[in-house]
């Protein structure tokens, strides 16, 4: 009797039991929710590489090089006035004190011949934004003050201001060089009345900020000592 009845019902609609399918789909959904990791909200600093310098533009190079602001970043404790071999030995000493494979975190940032600023790179990796912010602000303030004191010789437009060159010791972490770049950009944004250096047109009108090209080819201890010597004695 019951069988007959159910057959009759099937004539109108096919009842499909969806419960197992939904179970399965929910499991899949949970799996994908748990396994998918989203990249954190990343931002970018835009820059344009100079094309009016070097061999590509050998003909149009201006004869008198403009005065420039040098921002130097090197391991803490390296003072001026030593032989390259002394810096080589000091570097070996600093590295020996670190855990193997760990980067150097105590660095000095020096603008021209001024007093160096001590930076603790390990602060940038800390959880909670305040320690990171404080360290970033410290670098910004130092560079802003240094750029302010050189303001007198700036031209009318930001484009004519003294170019800034960042000389970072090659074996240090990339974050130090980028933070110096960031500080100069922030200074330019404030001095130019809030113009962001973002689009190509804005970058062409902005002050030139560059990362210095590599100084040594082979990173042997002696060559690296020479590099440090050169960076530290730049003015």
């Amino acid at each position: 009797m019951a069988r007959k009845f159910s057959r009759k019902a099937e004539d109108n609609a096919v009842p499909l039991d969806m419960t197992p399918m939904i179970d399965c789909i929910f499991l899949l959904l949970i799996f994908f929710i748990l396994t998918s990791k989203f990249t954190p909200d990343e931002k970018a600093i835009a820059s344009l590489m100079p094309t009016d310098k070097g061999q590509a533009a050998a003909a149009s190079v201006s004869p008198i090089p403009k005065e420039q602001v040098n921002i130097k970043i090197f391991p803490a404790g390296m003072t001026k006035g030593h032989q390259p071999s002394a810096y080589r030995d000091k570097l070996t000493e600093i590295r020996a004190a670190l855990q193997p494979g760990r980067p150097i975190q105590e660095v000095w940032l020096q603008v021209g011949g001024e007093d160096p600023l001590v930076i603790d790179g390990s602060k940038f990796a800390q959880a909670g934004g305040d320690a990171v912010k404080a360290e970033v602000n410290k670098i910004h303030q130092h560079i802003h003050a240094a750029l302010d004191s050189r303001k007198g010789s700036d031209g009318a437009s930001r484009k004519d201001a003294q170019p800034v060159v960042i000389h970072c010791f090659s074996a240090l972490s990339w974050k130090f060089a980028l933070l110096a770049y960031d500080a100069v950009r922030e200074y330019e944004r404030v001095t130019s009345g809030g113009k962001a250096m973002q689009k190509a047109a804005e970058l062409l009108e902005a002050r030139e900020v560059m990362f210095a090209p590599p100084r040594v080819r082979n990173y042997t201890p002696n060559e690296v000592g020479n590099e440090l010597h050169e960076i530290i004695h730049f003015r």
């Binding site: 600093i45 820059s47 980028l178």
Partner: peptide, 26 residues
């Protein structure tokens, strides 16, 4: 320096450095 003439160089000049805001951690 590269020895190719300038017309044959293949430069990319628009560079973005990826970064994050100091408050945001990963």
């Amino acid at each position: 320096p590269n020895t190719v003439p300038a017309q044959e160089m293949k430069p990319f000049i628009a560079i973005n450095y990826t970064t994050r805001r100091p408050g945001e951690n990963k």
